[in-house]
Design a protein around this nucleic acid. Structure first.
Length: 562
RNA sequence: UGUCCUGUGGUGUAAUUGGCAACACGUCUGACUCUGGAUCAGAAGAGUCCAGGUUCGACCCCUGGCAGGACAACCA
């Protein structure tokens, strides 16, 4: 485990830690802590899943327990091996290891089948032949009781026989189900004789054609927990009403020892984005983004491509906390977490994203100096990089103003400014095109002010690149995907996609220091005074492509907004 | 007009289980700075959904409200 996890404050415990601590003290789980992360392989993982992954693996780690990876693959029509693979990749990338405990609910289909027969024999389950619509209608509503199925009291032998023939594939999809026999008038809808098995003549990505009946979530999940000796089964709030059913199955299976218990916590919500699989899928399929791993997506693969680090996401998961109340986390917290990590761990670079030419009139025409830049001021031991300097440079267009406001510390006619790692220059005059745009800024430099040899102070320091040495790069500037805090807060008939930020991606050509010419995919840099960037997978030798992970905090821009 | 869950600064999470609310993000000052970054110092901001009650004392316990959320797939 990394440093930051070890250093987390241990002063107070979240409610799950309190439960576990108590269980451990009272010997309720024989000293064991065993959790699991149970994704359904029907989509890509997002930052909300990351919270759950960090929670489950983190708890196991903290209490010297184990955490299983278990795919909840009980619905073959929606699941596939591609999703299994992407999920495994994402969890590993986040830094967690399930060792040899990679399980699948489908591994337990035989056992589950036998357990279901046990319940039938006890008179606790029966084969029901109503149609789907009939079952739904018969279930009643939350405030009115349901109706008893005409098949509810059929003989055990008959249910056993039918269930066996369902398994053999003798009946068409939807013609029969196995239901638990509980209580049709329960105020809890999930206790109104829930379906345990449905008939689906579908090929499963692991069991192939072996089964034509598949267990439902409630039936499969709790029993899988039991079979894996899970102690604390942690899920999100919407499963709270399922807990009585979770316990009912265990009770009626006569599970006395090693009973898993379910606990629920509030899922993560982030402002300026959406988190539901359905909506994310809609963005992908409607080509609003380039795919699941579009750097604007809140998916793990999107954040990875965006340049987020695994550590920053782990720290974020720690900082958002765990509780039972609905919450919306500020995107600024996520951004703070990456900045903190990247500030410490990324090398600096000068890159000019919106170039304007700067000519030093009194600098020799053919001279090139090699200057030393610090790779990372936070880690001076990493040493220096070489930066070529010459008469003709490019600086950021917004670092020059002809008629600057009061607190503008950058370049303006007659003003002096330091070129980082180089000299102090003074603006003498500018050249404009016919439209009045500045095309060249002419300066003079003071040879005595070379970096390191001078103590002269000026208000501003600018980044720059040498015109003859800089390398061109494509830079993709990403911003938040939506321009409102809650994209799902809509007027009647509105669509969340109406809230998409039209400027969430801006592609520009920038100029970077030649030292990054051979940068490799995934490498992360801080462009000085600009932001954190990483090399996109689209980058090729000779054609650099950078993604902006997050901008630097910009107090100038901030004070200017007002 | 059902059942269950949840209400603490703008946001999120705490409060060692009854001793007048802490931390983080954000916001705002100031210092420092060859990144208007980082760092450092400081400030503002809640009296804990409301009303009663118990108690010397309540965010915490009790009663009653109110508000928000979840639940009626052969999805998970």
């Amino acid at each position: 485990m990394k440093e930051e996890e070890k250093n987390k404050q241990t002063g107070s415990l979240n409610f799950l830690e309190q439960v576990i601590t108590k269980d451990l003290e009272q010997g309720n789980t024989k000293g064991r802590v065993h959790t699991r992360f149970p994704p359904e392989p029907n989509g890509y993982l997002h930052i909300g899943h990351a919270k759950s992954i960090c929670l489950n693996f983190g708890l196991a780690n903290k209490y010297n327990g184990k955490c299983n990876l278990r795919f909840d693959d009980t619905n073959p029509t929606k699941e596939s091996i591609e999703y299994v693979n992407s999920i495994k990749e994402d969890i590993r990338w986040l830094g967690f290891d399930w060792e040899d405990r990679e399980y699948y609910a489908s591994d337990y289909f035989d056992k589950l089948y036998e357990m279901a027969r046990y319940l039938i024999k006890k008179g606790k389950a029966y084969v029901c032949e109503m149609t789907g619509e009939e079952i739904a209608a018969g279930r009643g509503t939350p405030s009115t009781p349901g109706k008893i199925s005409p098949w509810r009291d059929r003989p055990v032998e008959e249910s056993l026989d039918l269930f066996d023939r369902m398994k053999k594939g003798e009946f068409p999809d939807g013609s029969k189900v196995l239901r638990a026999k509980i209580y049709m008038a329960s105020p809890n809808m999930h206790m109104r004789d829930p379906v345990m098995y449905r008939i689906m003549h579908a090929r499963h990505h692991r069991t192939q054609d072996k089964w034509c009946i598949y267990p439902m979530y409630d039936w499969a999940h709790g029993q899988s927990d039991y079979l894996e000796n899970i102690t604390h089964s942690i899920c999100t709030l919407e499963f709270e009403v399922h807990r009585p059913l979770y316990d009912w199955f265990l009770d009626n299976l006569d599970v006395k020892v090693n009973r898993p218990r379910q606990f629920e916590f509030a899922r993560l919500n982030l402002n300026y984005t959406v988190m539901s699989k359905r909506k994310l899928l809609e963005l992908v399929e409607g080509d609003y983004v380039s795919g699941w791993n579009d750097p604007r997506m809140p998916t793990i693969s999107g954040l990875r491509r965006r340049g987020y680090t695994p550590a920053s996401i782990r720290v974020f998961s720690e900082k958002v906390g765990v509780a039972k109340r609905e919450n919306v986390i500020d995107m600024a917290l996520l951004e703070h977490c990456v900045r903190e990590d990247l500030n410490k761990n990324s090398e600096r670079l000068m890159a000019v994203l919106d170039p304007v030419k700067l000519v030093i009139d009194n600098y020799p025409d053919d001279k090139t100096e090699i200057l030393e830049g610090i790779r990372n001021p936070e880690r001076p031991e990493q040493g220096h990089r070489n930066i070529p300097f010459s008469k003709t440079l490019y600086i950021e267009r917004k670092d020059f103003m002809e008629d600057p406001p009061k607190k503008f510390f950058r370049l303006a006619p007659g003003r002096e400014v330091r070129l980082k790692y180089a000299y102090i220059v003074k603006c003498e005059n500018v050249v404009k095109d016919s439209a009045g745009n500045v095309t060249e800024i002419h300066c003079t430099y003071d040879p005595e002010t070379r970096s390191g040899n001078s103590t002269k102070k000026v208000k501003g320091t600018l980044h720059w690149v040498s015109a003859g040495h800089a390398v061109e790069a494509e830079v993709r500037l990403y911003d938040r995907l939506f321009d409102v805090e809650d994209p799902t807060d809509l007027p009647e008939g509105g669509d969340f996609k109406d809230n998409l930020n039209p400027d969430s991606l801006q592609i520009i050509k920038g100029l970077v220091e030649p030292s990054v010419k051979d940068a490799k995919q995934g490498e992360r840099y801080q462009f000085e005074r600009t932001g954190y960037f990483c090399i996109d997978p689209d980058s090729k030798p000779g054609k650099l492509v950078f993604n902006r992970t997050v901008s630097l905090r910009d107090s100038w821009a901030k004070m200017h907004k007002k």
